[in-house]
Simulated assay, not measured.
Amino acid sequence: MPSRRSILKKAKAADLRPQAVDGSWLRKLLDRGRTFFRRPSRHGDQSVERHLELMARSVERCDWQAARDHALALGLLGEKLGDRGLVKKAGRGLRRLGGGNRAWQLIASSKQVPGRPEWDGNDLAGRSLAVERREGDLAIFLQFASLLGPVVAAADRCTVLVEPRLAPLYRRTYPALDVRPEAEGAAAVDADVFACFETLARHLWPDEPTARAPFVPLEPDRRLVAELRGAYLAHGPGPLIGFAWGSLNKSKDLPALDDWRALLGNLPGRFVSMQYGDVGPALSEFERWAPGRIIHDASVDQLSDMDRFAAQIAALDAVVTISNTGANLAGALGVPTVVLLDDGFRLSWPAFGETVATYPSVRLVRKGGRAWASAMREAGGRVAQTIGGAGDGS
């Protein structure tokens, strides 16, 4: 498996201009997304196999209610059979399908560590709690950050193990939180009870929206936010709109650079690149469509300094981006954001609708079987509504 250092080195050097795809390649991509639930059952259980097959068919025809019903059934079967993998897969599917609190119950139970006391939602007064992700990508720390407030207030001491690049954001947002790098490991933390982030969601995000722990945006370095915003507005009047277009993930169907032409040409203000990698070739093309309005800040490197990247995003009036870490970070910061989604069944975002419960400021624009140019026009319209009366922002 490549080291994190080698992956970052590759990402920094990559020219991530999206490549055109032919119809057969795209069909294969969509097929992979729609077969998320197809898996051989190690139990040979016919009920499992039947629900897996019906689940896959439901996803393929976008029958989300039926897909949710089969995911619920798979969760119950996974619990009955003691199959943690099936429980996790059902929970992750339900999360995409509007499965409510049941999604968190299933994912949390699949992540429990044997022999370690898991928080059961009871009073934390006089007790210490340690929170960790256990597995999953960086987005987990962004999607669930709001849940730390209630437990920090309730526990005698709350420790959280985080990806080191996010430690400054966490410490600034929750000064009473004991933030430690993940490398230390939960085994080195002295706590009465433990929890993964989904355990927090299970107890603090019930089905009733009015009872949910409220969204709390992460707190960027405000001095740096003001510094970056001032530097960007020195290029000309705002609004400031962040954008990102490329990914190392070759399974994504992404808008071609030319699909950004109308969006860049029709919106006012400056466009700030949030893209990692070798952005030079793409920016040269964008500059032709929005001459003098493209900003690339080489002092911001999201791959090594997430805090400065967060300050850059917080300095913006709006963001329009493909699905990536920047989209999640913008949502966690509460910055108005439009996320462009292809038609794959992806785990990061809801399978339907335009809102995201964990990020109130995010709106989703789905390709929906259209040409990307049509989806980009919709995205441009949403950004225009968002920036509304935004001017120079000073």
Score class of each variant (00 low, 15 high):
Gly230Phe: 13
Gly230Met: 12
Gly230Val: 11
Gly230Asn: 14
Ala231Ser: 15
Leu233Val: 13
Leu233Lys: 14
Ala234Ile: 13
Ala234Asn: 12
Ala234Thr: 12
His235Gln: 15
His235Asn: 14
His235Ala: 15
Pro237Ala: 15
Pro237Lys: 15
Pro237Val: 13
Pro237Thr: 14
Pro237Tyr: 14
Gly238Asn: 11
Pro239Ile: 10
Leu240Ile: 08
Leu240His: 09
Ile241Arg: 12
Phe243Thr: 10
Phe243Glu: 10
Phe243Asp: 08
Ala244Tyr: 08
Ala244Cys: 11
Trp245His: 08
Trp245Asn: 07
Gly246Ser: 09
Ser247Lys: 08
Leu248Pro: 10
Leu248Val: 15
Leu248His: 12
Asn249Ser: 14
Asn249Tyr: 14
Asn249Thr: 14
Asn249Leu: 15
Lys250Tyr: 11
Ser251Glu: 13
Ser251Asp: 13
Lys252Asp: 09
Lys252Trp: 13
Asp253Ala: 06
Asp253Tyr: 09
Asp253Thr: 06
Asp253Gln: 05
Leu254Ile: 05
Pro255Tyr: 06
Pro255His: 06
Ala256Gly: 14
Ala256Ser: 13
Ala256Ile: 08
Ala256Phe: 08
Ala256Cys: 11
Leu257His: 01
Leu257Glu: 00
Leu257Val: 04
Leu257Thr: 02
Leu257Ile: 01
Asp258Phe: 04
Asp258Pro: 05
Asp259Thr: 05
Asp259Trp: 04
Trp260Thr: 00
Arg261Glu: 04
Arg261Met: 07
Arg261Asn: 06
Ala262Pro: 11
Leu263Arg: 01
Leu263Glu: 01
Leu263Cys: 05
Leu264His: 02
Leu264Val: 03
Gly265Ala: 09
Gly265Ile: 07
Leu267Ile: 03
Leu267Thr: 03
Pro268Ser: 06
Pro268Asp: 05
Pro268Glu: 05
Pro268His: 06
Pro268Ile: 05
Gly269Pro: 01
Arg270Pro: 02
Arg270Ser: 01
Arg270Tyr: 03
Phe271His: 02
Phe271Asp: 00
Phe271Glu: 01
Phe271Ile: 01
Val272Tyr: 00
Val272Thr: 00
Val272Trp: 00
Met274Gln: 06
Met274Ser: 05
Gln275Gly: 01
Gly277Tyr: 00
Gly277Trp: 00
Asp278Val: 07
Asp278Tyr: 14
Val279His: 04
Val279Gln: 02
Val279Leu: 03
Val279Tyr: 04
Val279Ser: 03
Gly280Pro: 07
Gly280Val: 08
Gly280Glu: 09
Pro281Met: 04
Pro281Glu: 04
Pro281Trp: 07
